[in-house]
Amino acid sequence: MCGACTVHIDNKPVRSCAFPISALGSSKVTTIEAVSGRAADAVKAAWIANNVPQCGYCQSGQIMSAVALLDTNASPSRQDVDVAMSGNLCRCGTYPRIRAAIADAAKALA
């Protein structure tokens, strides 16, 4: 339940470890390898600019949750960010860089 396995199911972030494949039906699944669009591009660029990754374990899940947030709310408050990212744990504690990257990505989308 760390969020590292986050994927998008019909454009919503879902922890794949807790989602039964039998519930998938005809839903569209997007993984980190295929995430794309304006929000994804902004998040990826901000992640690099803010040197977010440390060990890298959680990064795919963090990015997927951040992209899902910015796809639905291009100008999130700090509370919006905290709520959206609450299911993603970072063992290295890069939360300040994650928040900064999301803020920068939101500015790029404005």
Rank of each mutant, 00 (worst) to 15 (best):
N51I: 08
A103I: 09
T72A: 15
S65Q: 02
A45W: 10
L70F: 11
C2L: 13
S36D: 09
S22Q: 14
D41W: 08
A42N: 11
A49Q: 11
T31R: 15
Q62Y: 01
V35K: 00
I21Y: 14
W47F: 15
K107R: 08
L24P: 11
A66H: 00
A39Y: 06
R38S: 13
A46M: 10
S77W: 12
K107Y: 01
D80M: 14
N73H: 14
N11Y: 00
D82H: 15
C2A: 15
V14K: 10
C5S: 07
V14W: 06
I98T: 05
F19D: 09
A101V: 01
L70A: 10
I98N: 01
P76Y: 07
A45Q: 15
G56E: 05
R99P: 02
T6G: 08
A49W: 09
A39P: 07
A105V: 06
D82Q: 14
S27Q: 15
L24T: 08
A101M: 03
R15I: 08
V67H: 00
S26R: 07
A106P: 08
K44P: 06
G87C: 11
A18E: 10
G87M: 14
V52P: 01
K28C: 06
V67F: 05
V29G: 08
S60Y: 02
G87A: 11
C17V: 09
R97D: 09
A45F: 11
K28T: 13
